[in-house]
Amino acid sequence: MPRVDLLDSECAPITVQQYFANGDPGPIVGALATVPELLEPTLGFVGAALGAGAIGVRYKEFAILRTSVLQGCDYCIHAHTAVSLDSGLSTTEVRALRGEIPLEAGFALESERSLIGWIDALAGATGPVPDDVWSAARRHWGEHVLVELTVTIGATMFLNRFATGLQLPTADHVLERLTTEGLA
């Protein structure tokens, strides 16, 4: 059960009703709408940070799914397991990002493992990030890629805590799909 009322189209505040015009916009919007002045800027930021951007949807999903696993956010793990599959990641890659099989079993390229190393260092630990993790990633990726990925990781951590703290529920159709694919 969510900890807050998830607003629907009937009780959506007048300033954000456009987000409800095409049906249920989901629990993140339903919860954010209780503070309507935060909805637009938050969605603007999150949408830009989690959208395809310059580095493409594959690496964005690396960051979002892996971060959500490290932060233990069931809502985001469920949602982005489905999005990752839709974005072309294989079931093996998804399992590796979810920590169910070794990373090496899912990702043969050192460049991609270095990117995941950067995600792990940021989202799976606190305090300073070791230089060798940065250097390993920089051998393969430009600064702008790592900056964009870092924004995605940070935005995902925000969403992870938002969804976990407010106990946002996973949509039934997502759970059904993941159950079918053995990834629930």
């Binding site: 505040p13 300033t15 002045e37």
Partner: peptide, 20 residues
């Protein structure tokens, strides 16, 4: 509380809800 006519949770500075 009905929220359908809610503008903002922010009340001060008053310019914030006035703009909304």
């Amino acid at each position: 509380l009905d929220t359908d006519l809610l503008l903002t949770r922010t009340i001060l500075p008053l310019a914030v809800p006035a703009a909304a």
